[in-house]
């Protein structure tokens, strides 16, 4: 109990002295601390500007435009001949097949199933 009481006295006195030591910080050091704080806050402004929504939007848009500029010129320059006749025939065949299927369907409808 007595030990606890002594500890409490020590804590109170130490706290008071430490508070006094803070109040006694000289002007030069306070000025340095003020400068340090301004430097720290300016760091925050710099890093924060990067995260502004319009900035990130601008970066995204620029990236997309750049990508289009890089990729697009190659697409129109492809020669028409590169689309082979075989591919064309396959497409026609698929369309014809669809037409035949549809014809069968229409015939089936005409037969009175519709």
């Amino acid at each position: 109990m007595a030990m606890n009481s002594k500890h409490i006295d020590l804590e109170k006195k130490a706290k008071q002295l430490l508070d006094d030591s803070v109040a006694s910080i000289d002007a030069a050091t306070q000025s340095k601390l003020n400068q340090a704080r301004q430097v720290a806050l300016s760091h925050g402004k710099k890093s924060r500007v990067i995260y502004l929504p319009w900035f990130s939007g601008l970066v995204t848009t620029s990236a997309v435009v750049l990508l289009l500029i890089v990729v697009m010129p190659f697409s129109p320059s492809l020669p028409p001949s590169s689309f082979s006749m075989n591919q064309l025939e396959q497409l026609v065949m698929i369309e014809e097949l669809d037409l035949y299927n549809d014809l069968e369907f229409y015939q089936w409808l005409d037969d009175g199933n519709g």
């Binding site: 430490l18 030591s21 803070v22 910080i25 050091t29 306070q30 601390l33 003020n34 340090a36 704080r37 720290a40 806050l41 925050g44 402004k45």
Partner: peptide
């Protein structure tokens, strides 16, 4: 936020320094 942070740091910087 910057104003609040400035206030917070101003209140704590001297103790941190000590």
């Amino acid at each position: 936020m910057s104003d609040s942070l400035n206030h917070f740091l101003a209140n704590n910087e001297r103790q941190a320094f000590r």
